[in-house]
Simulated scan of single mutants.
Amino acid sequence: MRLLCALLGLLCWPLSTWAQAPQRIISLTPHLTELLFDIGAGDRIVATDDASDFPPEVKTRPQVANYRSINLEALLAQKPDLVVAWRSAQSRMLAPIEQLGIPVFYSEPTDFASLADEMRRLGKLLALEPSANAQADAYMARLNAIKSRYGKPKPVSVFYQLWYPPLTSVSGVAWPAQAIELCGATNVATGAKTPYPQIGLEQVIKANPRLILAGSQDPAVLTHWQQWPMLDAVKNRQLRLINPDELHRFTPRALNAVEQVCEAIADANPAS
């Protein structure tokens, strides 16, 4: 370890400094930045990635990464005692950091309920269990209330437009796909081999969704559907926007967007 540090011209921290709860945290993904603030550790964040923009005060912190790369020199200059990151996207890039002995907390929530587990894990790691557990309990209570209110199956097929062009949707473990299922509707892209499949226009026309959602705040992203007035969603004016900053991030704020999805499905339900 010390030889590696000397060769790289870096400062290594002795293991004894990690005996207490981490106080200098670098967050390399937006959802973890939000979670740290949620559980009361926002003041410990010393640097972030360039996409961390919520809550607004985090924008003043130094940025040491983007979605493609991590500036290891800038990261190490902050002398972190913990780095938090997204496992599937960043574990390879962080291998040198782990080799230096700097602890890394990896996040990989698989569904809405697992987010509460991650909040509790972070709380335990940071000696913030009371506040983290309270936030996790409140999150699960809201999630269960949404399921109870909207979860009954409905005869509504939904196409979720992640972006266009190319026409891309969601399936499987993608959170928008899980939201559609949670709200009791049928996802047109169910059965796709990847979470974010490219979808042929013909497939959408054949499925004739009753509701088309788009992860965007720009109404223009849905205008191309007006070329297909025979679609039930177009005919019945069931084209809706969903806040992507909420639904596409693994944070408690995602439930705001889940409620948007559920309300849109309820409005499109012919039985209502």
Rank of each mutant, 00 (worst) to 15 (best):
V258Q: 09
P209H: 00
V84I: 10
V83N: 04
V46R: 02
A136F: 10
D117M: 02
C12Q: 06
P270T: 12
E73C: 09
L82I: 00
I102K: 12
T194H: 02
A271T: 14
L128W: 12
K193E: 14
L201I: 04
A127P: 13
S88F: 11
V258M: 03
P197V: 03
L32F: 14
M230N: 13
A189H: 03
L15R: 15
V104Y: 00
S171F: 05
M140K: 01
F159S: 06
L222N: 04
P229K: 05
Q238C: 02
H31T: 00
T190R: 15
R121T: 08
H224W: 14
A85M: 10
M93N: 13
A132V: 11
A21P: 02
Q20V: 15
L128Q: 06
N187D: 06
L247C: 02
Q198A: 13
K59S: 13
L72K: 04
V204F: 01
Q161Y: 00
L115P: 08
L35I: 08
Q226F: 02
S169F: 04
M119T: 08
S114I: 03
G101Y: 15
G184L: 01
Y196C: 11
K193M: 12
S16V: 11
V173Y: 11
P209M: 01
A134W: 07
S69V: 14
A89Q: 12
A138D: 02
E259R: 06
Q227W: 12
L126A: 10
R237A: 13
A77Y: 00
E263L: 14
G151P: 02
R87Y: 04
T17V: 15
T48W: 11
G9Q: 09
R237L: 00
D218Y: 02
Q135K: 15
T186V: 09
R61K: 14
P130Y: 07
T168C: 08
A179H: 06
S171W: 10
A141T: 13
I25M: 07
P209V: 05
L15F: 13
P30C: 07
P155W: 07
Q90Y: 09
T223W: 02
D218K: 06
F37Q: 13
N269I: 01
D49L: 02
Q226L: 08
P56Y: 06
L72S: 05
Y67A: 15
S131L: 13
V64L: 07
L143Q: 06
G151C: 05
L100Y: 11
A257P: 03
